[in-house]
Design a protein around this nucleic acid. Structure first.
Lengths: 236, 236
DNA sequence: GTCTATACTACGATAGAC
DNA sequence: GTCTATCGTAGTATAGAC
């Protein structure tokens, strides 16, 4: 609904109409199983799990509904396999961009860059992550091995970020902020932004996933982390 | 799913078990119509619109499914009426807390406080707002008068915030940030946080909606806006 | 590995009695 | 204003032919 809501706001949005250069998720889908996962990821990201029927998944794959059950036991398993892939992709980016030899402030910059890159890489990532974070479990995650796998990946990601913040505070490079509050703020600044979809594009007055928009987002978050918004910080 | 994911992280969370002092949304529901709206708001916030069946709404009201259609033409209309109420509540808080005589920096502080208050007032507000922002329209909003009403309320809220940021930059009280990026960051820091539900509570190590947690959240966002995270800002 | 056919449940919505 | 009954569709899932 928010589409139209904000279109009233943007009058000077020349760059808006430009089509997003959104390539398919690298490979052209080898096996049927891969194809299903890709299609389901796209649909789950858009409509959510409850809003996506397996029929629509099957149709988008050029398959019959029943064929899905040859590759996945249930909708819940398919869902958690999709989520698990997403979390793994994020973790891979974050760990491969880690720079243990640097100080906390620089490591945080790298962490934000890597997180933004992982969210910007595919437009499905942020919506799926956001949904997984704030939605109630429609299925009980612990009952499926795919669910617990995704959970533990997320746990590692969060724990590493908390550790980074704690170290920065301890060393005096960061202010003495509340670690969980700060983490929530960083998640909001990154995940929400790239999940905001059409609302975000209208608000931004242009594409969210273009290379330029991603660069600007990194820059803005970084400056916000380093200096806040207000120009003259009061005496600390 | 995220419940269990993070329970592995929090060992020192003594305040966690405390039951939230969550009062019902002030009045004890006069008419049936009001009751339906309240119940639907709670369920839509938890499971989303697609994930909530009208049967569950009716059951929670002590009504039969068909009775809902005496008060609302369709599920879509009920949904947008719920959303419209939520948006109106937020706008009311924001406008009644506006202080036109103050400068942009102080007005922004008040705006953040009012937004946080409106999100903390009822735990349903932030999830519903977040869903409305980032989810695709399951129904076309423009086709229903309730949809367009909600849209225009949101448009006014966003436009006012953009104007506030623009004025702050113009007067030199804010740095020369990207207005839409900053707005997205502020939305993420507020709306996402209070929508993060059980994940947020586990991450925070305690309740999100307690008076103390809300105070801390305001303080943290304010300090982030004023000073960022990093202790010694580099020369500007 | 994909298909047709089918089972069963839930969905949104309508009609009409009370 | 609420109910029962019903419609038509779509939901997840299974069985078995090809």
């Amino acid at each position: 609904m928010v589409l139209d809501a904000l279109e009233a706001l943007e009058e000077a949005s020349e760059g808006m109409g430009a089509p997003l250069p959104q390539r398919p998720p690298q490979t052209p889908a080898a096996s049927s199983r891969e194809k299903i996962l890709e299609v389901a990821e796209a649909l789950f990201a858009r409509r959510g799990s409850a809003g996506t029927g397996l029929q629509s998944v099957a149709e988008a794959c050029g398959l019959g509904k029943s064929s899905l059950f040859h590759h996945f036991d249930s909708k819940a398993q398919l869902y958690y396999e999709v989520i698990g892939r997403v979390f793994a992709r994020i973790e891979e980016r974050l760990t491969s961009a880690a720079t243990p030899h640097c100080g906390p402030a620089e490591r945080l910059d790298r962490w934000i860059d890597a997180l933004v890159d992982s969210l910007a890489e595919q437009p499905t990532t942020a919506p799926l992550l956001l949904r997984a974070l704030f939605e109630e479990d429609e299925f009980a995650a612990a009952n499926l091995p795919e669910g617990t796998a995704a959970e533990s990946t997320l746990t590692r990601i969060i724990a590493a970020a908390q550790h980074l913040l704690a170290e920065g505070i301890e060393r005096g490079e960061f202010r003495q902020v509340s670690i969980p509050d700060t983490l929530q703020t960083l998640i909001g600044a990154t995940v929400y932004h790239f999940a905001s979809g059409e609302f975000g594009e209208v608000l931004m007055g242009g594409p969210i996933f273009s290379a330029e928009a991603v660069r600007r987002r990194k820059r803005e978050i970084r400056s916000f982390v380093h200096q806040g918004l207000v120009a003259s910080p009061p005496a600390r």
